[in-house]
């Protein structure tokens, strides 16, 4: 069982104040043309798709040791798919207070991006899920299987906006 002092130290550790995390991210990602913004206690960093992997490597080196979620957002209006990696840290108490959204946009008709499996092995199942749910191709991903859908599934990936399900109500 943990000693009391250890856990309390972690609980009381000072988190990086709002301005500081953005400065830190700016320093870490210098030269990758990041757009850093924060809203509602969450920080997000947008990088161009070809810089995604490099940004991930630098974030990992800065102490962000795992990925919490990989989310693809289909935006048919602008013809893009937005890809968001929520990353954070287990070990660094200053960083673990924050969930940083590392995001990029991919073209909707050919969404291809390098897999971040080499950087963060924790993305494995998340990327598999986004691949089958949104049709994003993660090049270099070690596992080509489908994850949740049956192997025989064909057609539009379900989380694309043009995949319609029945809705209730008068508009149905």
């Amino acid at each position: 069982m943990a000693s009391k002092s250890e856990s309390q130290v972690q609980g009381k550790a000072e988190a990086a104040p709002p301005g500081e995390i953005e400065t830190l991210l700016g320093e870490v990602l210098e030269g990758l043309s990041p757009e850093i913004s924060s809203a509602r206690g969450a920080v997000s960093v947008k990088v161009p798709p070809d810089r995604l992997k490099e940004a991930a490597e630098r974030l990992k080196a800065a102490g962000f040791d795992h990925v919490k979620a990989v989310t693809g957002i289909d935006r048919p209006d602008s013809g893009e798919i937005e890809l968001v990696y929520h990353v954070s840290s287990y070990l660094d108490p200053r960083l673990s207070k924050w969930i940083v959204a590392l995001r990029t946009t991919l073209p909707r008709d050919n969404p291809e991006t390098p897999s971040l499996y080499d950087v963060w092995p924790s993305v494995k199942y998340h990327e598999m899920e986004q691949r089958e749910m949104l049709g994003i191709h993660f090049s270099g991903h070690p596992d080509p299987r489908s994850l949740l859908l049956p192997e025989s599934y064909e057609g539009v990936p379900p989380l694309r906006k043009d995949f319609k399900v029945k809705v209730e109500g008068i508009n149905a």
Binding site: E6, S7, Q10, H66, L91, S96, K97, P121, S122
Partner: peptide, 25 residues
Amino acid sequence: AIRLGIVGPNLRASGVPYDVRKVDP
């Protein structure tokens, strides 16, 4: 455990004192 992004009691059983209730109360 850290590399694979494990959570919860499975993570804490490997000696990582990460608990959202403390980290981000």
